[in-house]
Amino acid sequence: MAGAMRWARFDPLGMLGIMAMLLIWAAMTRVLPPSSLPGPLSVGLRLGQDFFAAPELSFYGLPDASLSGSMIYTAENVLVALGVGAGVGIAAGLLTARSATLRALIDPVLMTAGTIPILVLAPFFLIWFGVGRASSVLLVALYVSVMLYVFAQRAASGLDPVFEQSARTLGADRQRILIDVLLPSTIPQILGGIRIALAGCWGLEAIAELLGAQYGVGKIIEVLAGATDVQGILAALVLLGVVAVLFDAGAALATRRLARWSVTTQIGHER
């Protein structure tokens, strides 16, 4: 509880950084025309205006679009992709850390998949899974699973064998070792991986939507870019950024609670 309260306190330096950025932005609008760079205030107003209903988007074939609705669509996809990708990646990572044969089989496949640029992969997914949710969710899930595969595998490989040996001499079977040794011991590193993956997810999902989707923040950005509506694009980006920061704060809090036994996570957060 105390930890949660302390987290919620604002970081003065972080606030200072945001203020500085807004000032520079405002200063730049004095030089650049509003069509290239609208000011922070007008972007904020546009964000409020389009939040629940954005009628002008109907001209671009998005009749019922609003910023909040699109954001919820994007957030849902990100969370589903994170869940699916993390589940697959963690399971595969832990398994391959304990089986050299499986590792030799799976490592090259996932490592290759992880290096394919999203711009190359997206068209295939659109052909295979259409322009609905499935395409963007699976695309993002793929990158998440590769990242968490690496994190989980490294965490499990780095675990001192004495813990598993001790568990076995105390009478633990494989299932018990998985639940009470392998999973909890790797949780701090896996949660760290989930946080990094989550941060990347927003961008990937937006790109996936940009390349082919009917809803979502990425789709809004795509149509507004077609109309060179910089103000609208910036409003969508600000909303995406704020939501990403809030989710990251939630993930940080979860990490603190679930990994409170770990010395490293304590040091990482103590100030």
Binding site: D160, V162, F163, Q165, S166, A167, R168, T169, L170, G171, A172, D180, V181, P184, S185, I187, W261, S262, V263
Partner: peptide, 26 residues
């Protein structure tokens, strides 16, 4: 391995992710 042959290791084998009593109960 079997529980009728208990082992104390040279390295610290107490699970850092369990409280002391949960370790003893394991």
């Amino acid at each position: 391995p079997a529980p009728e042959r208990g082992m104390v290791f040279q390295k610290d084998s107490v699970f850092p992710w369990m409280r002391v009593i949960d370790n003893v109960e394991f």
